[in-house]
Design a protein around this nucleic acid. Structure first.
Length: 620
RNA sequence: CGGAGCGUAGCUCAGUUUGGUAGAGCACUUGCUUUGGGAGCAAGACGUCGCAGGUUCAAAUCCUGUCGCUCCGACCA
């Protein structure tokens, strides 16, 4: 790419007045004196903003296209992006908000290595689960690779717990919460949507260490509240949903999710907010069954030749799906198990994890016939026995149901009058099914009555808080001595925010046909001054200075471009406020000010314009 | 990793079926004109057509292999 013009300007700037004038120190909210990050040239002509009229063909969703078109980032290769100056400003603003809230919640910032010894992971409790996504990093100068193999860290529970095991030894040292903002590496099989799912991404991760479960709950609630403040300050509408703990392990978890139709997960919620859950966790009241159970003495076998599906049984024999039992065979830790669901319900595979298997998968037809003596479509749990089948697990909505129909374990036959508890005795009842849109919520703490209709929406997860328990502390020997001198494992929590993903989620949630509509808090610049006549440059500069004195960051569009180009670029990048300084409005007594979110501008004298803009910024 | 598709200028794409020595629009450079919503004219610069083999007098085009990327699925902040 030839950016000769910009390069020359930057070179002049370095050698001359520009940078020196803008360097300075400011006192950040955490009280440190920090080299002023925003010591960048604030003239467009000196900046580097390669906007694109057309988006690269591989950008599919709005935020990804805008990320590229507005000159915020560029792709190096699949899932790897360079942040350009403009995008980096927004990213740093998001990080600053996170830092402030984490610090004020009492967390301590650390910075852990991205390179981690494989040996550390092998000592931990989830090496096998994690290695799917890990990048290997091998020192090429080392001949004995086995001993020195390194990985690029996909996350840092192992590192921090190892640290803590060595240093938090007494109840007097607790509680503690450490966090960092670090690059994580995950070998995503399919990176997509720009920063939404990348191989390398920036994450804020925090880890809390407490003496007992009650104290850990306090830490959890602190982080939960900090997250609410963070997303609210960033300007992101994040829905909070009960979540599954997945491979992290642990007991309790919430996701902060941004609804958007390209989301990778689904969330279930009621309109009144009384219930919200991730799809792999959500529960509901099922639609009532059609048939009422008639008392019966025993299951009755009847021929159903050629019937292989639930739908078929409904059509040919008039048995409603909800009156049937769906019998699924899975191979869990190498043994066949039965999963039972109501005929009109769908299995949620993630929920099978609650049974504690290390791995599980649907059985093949051959495995099914071997275990059951019949083919799929004629399966049932009546009369099956161990050890052929290692376990029978039924969805909780089948509990106490009577008068059901299920396969007879003989091709071409079904059983009716089947009662749960009498004819089928599962090892355990639990929630196994997927919630369906329109079902009603169950009673819960927020709503003791329940019965609200449930909606389902795709969402992108930007934050996740876990109460981990002692899984990692036990693995790494992170114990402390109680007041009584007893050794106990510390109780952990972990808390993540996808920082780079959050940046793009803000764009996804704040854009229109013209471009981005940045919230003030994370806009790369709060104000753009669109200068249309060079004769007015001194006035534009003094306006810029006044705005900066009020604490706003301002970019002066001093490019030698036609007005249309400047307006289009301003809308595309999406500065919250645009001030137009041109002869037309100057003759009318002032400048034009306009919010990106509003259609029309208003012409005001400079002093009034200042007030209006500051008012907008304050109100945001 | 399974299925599908695409690699030609910085970006969007044509040219590939039927082999004949590289194109358009935008962007870039220079000049003139223009100047309140992505200007006009003129001149210019930019490509070993993803890479490696093969077929042929001749390959962007046909064949083989390979690499990269994108889309749909299983996984994740």
């Amino acid at each position: 790419m030839n950016h000769g013009k910009n390069v020359i300007h930057n070179a002049q700037d370095l050698s001359g007045k520009g940078l020196k004038r803008k360097m300075g120190f400011f006192v950040s909210a955490c009280g440190w004196r920090v080299l002023r990050y925003f010591a960048t040239p604030m003239r467009w002509s000196e900046f580097f903003i390669p906007t694109l009229r057309e988006a690269p063909a591989d950008a599919e969703i709005a935020s990804h296209r805008l990320l590229l078109r507005a000159g915020l980032a560029r792709k190096l290769s699949g899932g790897l992006y360079t942040y350009l100056p403009l995008g980096l400003r927004s990213l740093k603003k998001i990080e600053a908000i996170i830092r402030e809230e984490m610090n004020s919640a009492g967390a301590l910032e650390v910075f852990m290595p991205a390179l981690q010894p494989t040996e550390l992971w092998k000592r931990g409790p989830r090496f096998n689960a994690a290695k799917k996504v890990m990048f290997k990093a091998i020192s090429s100068s080392d001949k004995n690779l086995n001993d020195t193999e390194l990985v690029l860290g996909p996350t840092h529970e192992e590192v921090i717990t190892d640290l803590v095991a060595n240093h938090l030894n007494s109840y007097r040292h607790l509680p503690k919460n450490f966090y960092q903002i670090q690059t994580k590496f995950r070998d995503e099989i399919r990176p997509r949507f720009g920063l939404m799912r990348a191989k390398e991404f920036i994450m804020k991760d925090a880890y809390s260490f407490d003496a007992d479960d009650a104290a850990a709950s306090v830490s959890y609630r602190k982080m939960f509240a900090a997250y609410q403040r963070i997303f609210s300050r960033i300007g992101l509408q994040a829905k909070i949903v009960e979540a599954d703990t997945g491979v992290m392990g642990g007991s309790f978890s919430h996701e902060f999710s941004v609804p958007c139709n390209i989301g990778e997960s689904e969330i279930v919620f009621t309109d009144d907010g009384s219930y919200a859950g991730a799809i792999e966790k959500a529960v509901s009241r099922p639609h009532p069954r059609k048939a009422q159970a008639a008392p019966s003495d025993a299951p009755e076998k009847w021929p159903t030749p050629g019937v292989r599906t639930i739908e078929n049984l409904t059509k040919k024999h008039g048995v409603a799906a909800c009156d049937q039992v769906k019998t699924l065979v899975y191979i869990a830790d190498s043994k066949p198990v039965l999963l039972l669901l109501r005929g009109d319900h769908t299995l949620c595979e993630d929920k099978v994890a609650a049974l504690g298997f290390e791995e599980y998968r649907p059985a093949t037809d051959a495995e099914i016939f071997d275990a059951m003596g019949a083919h799929p479509g004629s399966l049932g749990a009546v009369g099956v026995c161990k050890p052929k089948v290692a376990g029978i697990y039924a969805d909780q909505d089948l509990k106490d149901e009577k008068g059901l129909v299920t396969g007879a374990n003989e091709d071409g036959f079904h059983l009716k009058n089947v009662d749960m508890g009498r004819d089928i005795v599962p090892d355990r009842y639990l929630s196994l099914r997927l919630v369906q849109e329109g079902e009603l919520s169950l009673p819960n703490e927020a709503d003791p009555v329940g019965g609200k209709p449930l909606k389902i929406q795709r969402a992108i997860e930007v934050g996740h808080v876990f109460k981990l328990g002692t899984k990692y502390s036990q693995a790494f020997g992170a114990t402390y001595l109680t007041q009584e001198g007893k050794s106990e494992p510390v109780v952990m929590g972990c808390y993540g925010i996808g920082v780079s993903r959050t940046l793009q989620a803000v764009i996804e949630q704040n854009c229109d046909e013209q471009g981005i509509r940045w919230p003030f808090a994370v806009a790369p610049f709060a104000v753009v001054i669109t200068l249309l006549d060079t004769s007015l440059t001194p006035h534009a500069l003094s306006l810029k200075e006044s705005l900066e004195k009020s604490g706003l960051d301002v970019l002066l569009d001093d490019r030698d471009e036609r007005p249309g180009v400047k307006f289009k670029d301003a809308d595309l990048i999406g500065f919250p406020v645009r001030v137009t300084v041109g002869e037309k409005s100057w003759a009318a007594g002032g400048v034009e000010v306009k919010l990106r979110t509003e259609k029309t501008a208003r012409t005001l004298p400079v002093s009034e314009a200042l007030q209006v803009i500051c008012g907008w910024a304050k109100a945001s």
